[in-house]
Design a protein around this nucleic acid. Structure first.
Length: 134
DNA sequence: GCCAACGTTGGC
DNA sequence: GCCAACGTTGGC
């Protein structure tokens, strides 16, 4: 069971939008590394939903409801489907992760431009604790 | 196949 | 709004 993190600018697509939509096609990813990560996502795996630019915090958790498939509209891209699962009781900010010290090798901090990345089980648990979630 | 120029992302 | 980091493009 792997864990993931996806980023979205809330002005383009926010956690509220994701919650209302129930299930979305996560499309428009062109970055090679992000696509490799998307290919590795399996049904039912959990994904942190991070607000970039505005908020800069992890706000909720989605689950993978459809594994990677090619984008019919763009042969250089592909999709996974994500469904909102639950919000975090307390969002975890980028500043909090940076000042904590345990997350220096988290993709979000190490490679800030990557939009889809794996999260280790240890990091996942630590972030869940910071969020006041189980 | 190299690399300079350019575009985009995202933190500050 | 600025700029660093990094990906992509195109001329050679």
């Amino acid at each position: 069971m792997a864990y993931w993190l996806v980023k979205s600018e809330p002005e383009a697509w926010s956690w509220d939008d994701q919650t209302k939509a129930k299930r979305t096609h996560w499309n428009g990813v062109r970055n090679a590394q992000a696509l490799i990560n998307m290919r590795a996502m399996k049904m039912g795996e959990e994904v942190f939903f991070y607000h970039s630019n505005v908020g800069k915090e992890i706000v909720g958790i989605c689950t993978v409801v459809r594994e990677f498939y090619p984008d019919p509209a763009d042969d250089k891209s592909g999709l996974v489907d994500l469904a909102a699962s639950r919000p975090l009781p307390r969002p975890v900010t980028l500043a909090a992760l940076k000042s904590d010290g345990r997350f220096d090798d988290l993709g979000l901090i190490r490679q800030s431009r990557l939009s889809v990345m794996p999260v280790s089980a240890a990091h996942w648990r630590a972030i869940m604790t910071l969020a006041g979630a189980k």
